[in-house]
């Protein structure tokens, strides 16, 4: 079975890779491009640990085929900081202790950024529902929600 050649953009950089037709985008990111920040917690779209942006939409990378990335733009956790400068969410997650084991953290950050990119003033309920597809087993979500609220407040103040 011949592999497919895919040309895509990942975190703003042109990237190419070879993949099986039925390989997921998550496996291609991790195994072909070495971007292991996106995690596989379930492989069925139920945990959100593999959250990435595909052409500006938040998706589970385990539920997209790698071949679908052809000609499209993918953003992952590895592209969230601008060089040395952390995204406000990355900083507030650290300040608010919004992670314990850290396995779900990349997915939460990518998902939370997608929320703040469209709404800088979400209510607690909106944050909780937006992030309902991201499972965290350690924190009970409290500090994650607070970190998102804090980042939003800071970004509102900057805006």
């Amino acid at each position: 079975m011949a592999k497919r050649h895919v040309t895509t953009t990942v975190n703003g950089e042109p990237r190419e890779f070879l993949c099986e037709v039925d390989q997921t985008l998550l496996d291609a990111l991790r195994d072909e491009l070495g971007l292991t920040g996106s995690k596989e917690g379930c492989g069925s779209g139920d945990c959100g640990a593999c959250s990435v942006m595909l052409d500006g939409r938040l998706v589970c990378a385990c539920l997209a085929l790698a071949v679908e990335a052809e000609g499209r733009e993918v953003e992952t956790i590895e592209g969230m900081a601008e060089g040395e400068r952390l995204h406000p969410l990355q900083r507030t997650f650290l300040e608010e202790a919004a992670l314990q084991c850290g396995i779900c953290t990349p997915g939460f950050l990518v998902a939370a950024k997608a929320l703040l990119d469209r709404d800088l003033d979400p209510s607690e309920t909106e944050i909780r529902y937006w992030l309902a597809g991201n499972l965290c087993r350690c924190t009970g979500y409290d500090k994650i929600v607070r970190a998102v609220q804090k980042a939003a407040a800071e970004m509102r103040a900057e805006a």
Partner: peptide, 11 residues
């Protein structure tokens, strides 16, 4: 852990 660099079991 907030930049995706941390290496977990499958990484």
């Amino acid at each position: 852990k907030v930049t995706g660099r941390a290496n977990f079991g499958a990484d």
